[in-house]
């Protein structure tokens, strides 16, 4: 298929992603806690969605009528969502400094309670986002709204039973305006997913449940990510939902964070932050 992507766009989006990664590193360092690994690994996807592929309005409305919706099911990587939303204009960028601190709208895991624009559902307790996204997608169909609903899940999260309830439901009910992503980095808190509870052939599982499955081998390459999203959209609205297995690298591209699950839920110290920031350039101005 042909793609609607220019080299200039890719360059611009890579610059945004670089700034988002700086934000993530500074946010988790700033509060001394959080989940930088998965956030860094999913940065390219979120930037591609919010800065190119999604129709959305930073003048936030909960109902999101005639907008594409995005749900983050693996809520622990909240830092990437917060930075992306702020950089996309949903709320002031300096507010990123309040992440995980008292009296903040930027809770440790995404929440609606404090009214942060861009958040439609609390997440953090894993396994719930695919159901929520399927429900929102069905409401769009009932309302004659032809926009998409996207949801991102972790690969470790696939161990939750509710995922498979929703996985069975969506194809049966032809929820074909739903596009799911699995952050397929083979890493979770206690080790690799292979060691903890092997997902085996995850793509075959979703196929057997009736999904159209796309595997993206380069989930940290902006051009490839854009192509994958466009391929997923093209495969949608044909009677089946689409699941993308997005192969990412936890901690990408920070040299001391990649290749291990150890940066799933740990903040860098001052020296580590300096080293990490030296590897991702400031493009839009730090908060």
């Amino acid at each position: 298929m042909s793609f609607n992507i220019t080299d200039e766009e890719v360059k611009k989006l890579e610059d945004v992603a670089s700034q988002v990664r700086r934000d993530i590193l500074r946010m988790v360092h700033g509060c001394g806690s959080g989940h930088p690994g998965g956030a860094l690994g999913c940065t390219d996807l979120l930037v591609a969605l919010y800065f190119k592929e999604m129709t959305h309005n930073p003048e936030f409305s909960m109902d999101g009528k005639d907008e594409d919706l995005f749900f983050l099911s693996n809520g622990h990587i909240s830092a990437v969502l917060y930075s992306t939303l702020a950089r996309a204009g949903y709320f002031p960028v300096p507010e990123l400094a309040t992440h995980r601190k008292i009296n903040s709208r930027l809770q440790g895991h995404p929440a609606t309670e404090e009214g942060l624009p861009g958040i439609r559902m609390a997440s953090g307790s894993l396994g719930q986002g695919l159901s929520v996204a399927a429900g929102a997608a069905q409401t769009k169909k009932l309302n004659g709204d032809d926009k998409f609903v996207y949801v991102l899940m972790g690969d470790g999260e696939q161990q939750e039973g509710q995922i498979w309830e929703a996985a069975m439901y969506a194809p049966h009910n032809k929820v074909d305006n739903l596009i799911g992503f699995v952050d397929y980095n083979n890493a979770q808190i206690d080790g690799s997913t292979d060691e903890v509870l092997n997902l085996l052939d995850l793509g075959a599982k979703y196929k057997a449940f009736g999904w159209h499955v796309i595997t993206c081998e380069k989930g940290n390459d902006m051009k490839t990510v854009l192509e994958t999203i466009q391929e997923a959209k093209a495969a949608s609205k044909q009677g089946t939902p689409v699941m993308v297995l997005l192969k990412t690298e936890m901690g990408h591209p920070i040299d001391f964070m990649v290749g291990t699950h150890k940066w799933h839920g740990q903040a860098p110290n001052d020296e580590q932050l300096a080293s990490a920031l030296g590897q991702v350039k400031e493009t839009l101005g730090d908060y």
């Binding site: 986002g129 996204a133 399927a134 429900g135 009932l142 709204d145 509710q162 929703a166 439901y169 009910n173």
Partner: peptide
């Protein structure tokens, strides 16, 4: 058209319902 049989999957049912509210249902 407004009734959804979800099968024996209560967790999914609650999640679906939560999602369906987004857009006014």
């Amino acid at each position: 058209e407004r009734f959804f049989q979800v099968g024996i999957a209560e967790a999914n049912m609650i999640g679906l319902a939560a999602g369906m509210t987004i857009g006014g249902k």
